[in-house]
């Protein structure tokens, strides 16, 4: 049997890889991809906890489904914003967006 720890470590690795990407990637859309990695790592957590806990209580799976929905909504708005900026300013590099500072 696979220990629950393995799942948690897998999801932590995935989460931190995503975190790295969010902090380091220049392209805003790439950052959003990394965000998806972080989100998906959490669903691993949730499903694994469901499986190793009380199986009759489905809140883990429900939570995961809700996370999917949120991820979809987030992607919609995030990409729309990125495209809007691309249209107006011809860039998607996060660090070029510094009209607002100090």
């Amino acid at each position: 049997m696979i220990p629950l720890e393995w799942y948690l470590i897998l999801s932590s690795v995935l989460f931190c890889v995503g975190l790295y990407g969010v902090l380091a990637r220049r392209n805003a859309i790439a950052i959003m991809m990394c965000l998806e990695l972080m989100m998906t790592s959490i669903t691993i957590n949730l499903v694994a906890f469901w499986r190793y806990g009380n199986v009759a209580n489905l809140s883990g799976q429900v939570f995961a489904v809700i996370v999917f929905a949120v991820a979809a909504a987030e992607a919609t708005v995030g990409l729309a914003l990125a495209i809007s900026i691309y249209r107006n300013r011809d860039t998607v590099v996060a660090n070029d967006l510094n009209l607002l500072k100090w």
């Binding site: 902090l23 380091a24 996060a94």
Partner: peptide, 11 residues
């Protein structure tokens, strides 16, 4: 010496 960069904030 820069800010206004979202990734710095995140960092």
């Amino acid at each position: 010496i820069q800010t206004g960069r979202i990734q710095n904030y995140l960092m």
